[in-house]
Nucleic acid binder design. Structure first.
Lengths: 352, 352
DNA sequence: CTGAAAGCGCTTACAG
DNA sequence: CTGAAAGCGCTTACAG
């Protein structure tokens, strides 16, 4: 009968003044009960609590934060392209901050919106700002400066290399080194690179990781890796992986291993290879990146690199808390997270 | 040289009082400039604007909203299990609301956190609350009542059937009817149901849709559909689809079509079928649901149902705006969104 | 065209 | 143990 939409007959209370009048106590007393302060009669406390039940009164957060104290809020700036991995990071971060009694304000940033986001966070007097993902470096530097000017600590998750920024980032160079090491140990000396010819920072880092790791083993990047990225319209999905693998097969002279930029591309490639009669891992090995759930859906299951999101988020939160209420640091904090190579059945000994 | 972390030598301004002193004008005047009110000398405006540049002053949102006006904010409550589809809905909603000059506060709700979320939204005096996903019905009803009591409009996206709730939901019954109609027209009379034996509301609705649509064609649900869900540990992913399809093949006497709960399960099933030598769609047709990107990664591409997220979100925003600043409605608004069947190569004529 | 004063809804010394 | 008063950072009539 009584639907949620139905207007309750309860008195409509909007402020602590209304509420105090309703209870028959001073605002001061009510405030103390609401904040669980000591030195109150048991009866008074119960009286107020009952009144809260009756009226559903909730104090106005805006008035509450006006006194210039910490707002216990953190602004989170997400890159606009939301991948599964980024969603995990976001959810994990919100969870962690909630445990520390912080409220998160999340804003998804697309380049066009010209970043009013920072102003918005500042107007909400957030205690700190977290960036997740990759952004325009110049804009970022400028925004980090605005934050610093206002005395708001900030931490960047993922985007490594922004000058002066506190950063928590996956050690992508090490991640790639792990893959190369693994494949090298299996006897692989020729590598097909899938989707590494991109100019975004994370990809450049990854390519650099391959280059260094090969050099370490006396191999030269340019002679033992092949990329056919230019043959197709750039993508980051299954279809791009499929198309690239197909081109490799058509071209002939297959490398013994494919190193894909991410799991989707790896899986697309695996499917194309299967269709074209190239067996994985007997004839060719394939690796992914990110260790998403889909790595377990393929036959064979996909060797991939796990980002260890929980460790990353823990580090970021720790970094944040160490800055809040402390005097600002001059040297930025930078923390690299070690990725974990998850070896599965898509990689095997190199064929001869 | 000047890194973002470096403390700027600019004067540190925290309030409009500080700022007004800095500019050498009254707070009133400054306020008017900040809010773009008419009747000010051009010179005054420029003076203030320059000072903003110089100091980076941003007014305190909490003080701003204290006057009891609309806060131009909307609280969004997300179910904790974040699927790709849900992320799309969220991003689309935030985008739309931003266009209407609303700020979104997003909270991911897990059952344990016992829903302080609503209190939090109320304390922020949001103009409205949107729920996206599926929640506990009893709790939801209670929370919607709290919102109604405080005069805060709300809309539920997805979770159809909550009493008294304003709802925008995909017409799942029609979505399933579309699939059945399509398969029926292709000559299919026996159907393997993959993962429909779940008791969550959306699944029940979907099963009901199949039942009704079959009945409409003189077919009886119990005799022409088979489910082997009970043979495996429940999942919603590729693996579950794979396992189910395998069981169907082992059992023998295959239905001519598989109707999967979602795209992942359908794709998992397709892979298992392929491995076991059952050709899709020659021997068996397969359908998915949600029309995710992965539908295009399979060979053959997957027939699926599109949720038309943009239409859904538009409807929800429209519903919300129609409630804000209006007197509360007694009858809840309910809007069903028509899904769109996307026919691809995974469905074909029934084999005889 | 600009400013002084009151008020929004809270908390926090300070009295009693 | 409880209350009256001041103050947080804004906006908005109301004066000038």
């Amino acid at each position: 009968m009584s639907s949620p939409q139905q207007k309750a007959s309860r008195p409509h209370i909007r402020s602590s003044t209304d509420f105090a009048r309703y209870v028959g106590l001073a605002r001061t007393t009510v405030s103390r009960v609401l904040n669980g302060q000591p030195g109150l009669k048991k009866k008074t406390i119960e009286r107020v609590k009952r009144a809260i039940e009756e009226t559903g009164f909730v104090p106005n957060a805006y008035a509450l934060h006006l006194k210039g104290k910490r707002t216990s809020t953190v602004g989170v700036c997400m890159q606009n392209l939301m991948t599964q991995t980024l969603v995990h990071k976001l959810a994990s971060l919100q969870q962690r901050l909630r445990e520390k009694n912080f409220t998160t304000f999340i804003e998804v940033v697309d380049p066009e919106s010209s970043w009013d986001v920072i102003r918005h966070f500042l107007s909400l007097r957030v205690d700190a700002v977290v960036f997740i993902g990759y952004f325009d470096e110049e804009q970022m530097t400028q925004h980090l400066r605005s934050l610093a000017t206002s005395g708001t600590p900030s931490t960047v998750i993922d985007h490594f290399g922004i000058k002066g920024a506190n950063t928590v980032s996956l050690d992508r160079v090490r991640g790639m080194a792990g893959i190369v090491e693994h494949l090298y140990a299996l006897g692989h000396r020729t590598f097909g690179l899938l989707a590494y010819s991109d100019t975004v920072r994370s990809t450049l880092d990854r390519a650099q990781g391959i280059r260094e790791s090969l050099a370490l083993r006396g191999l030269h990047f340019d002679t033992c890796t092949v990329s056919l990225d230019h043959l197709h319209v750039r993508g980051n999905d299954f279809e791009y992986g499929r198309a690239l693998a197909k081109s490799f097969v058509e071209r002939g002279n297959l490398p013994t291993a494919f190193i894909a930029l991410n799991d989707e591309i790896a899986i697309g490639a695996m499917h194309a290879l299967k269709e074209l009669g190239v067996r994985v891992p007997d004839e060719v090995s394939v690796t992914g990146f990110n260790n998403q759930d889909i790595c377990l859906m393929t036959a064979p299951n996909l060797t991939s690199v796990d980002q260890r999101i929980d460790v990353t988020v823990d580090a970021a939160v720790e970094m944040l808390l160490s800055q809040i209420d402390k005097s600002p640091r001059t040297k930025p904090l930078v923390r690299m997270i070690d990725p974990e190579l998850i070896i599965r059945a898509s990689t095997g000994p190199a064929r001869h």
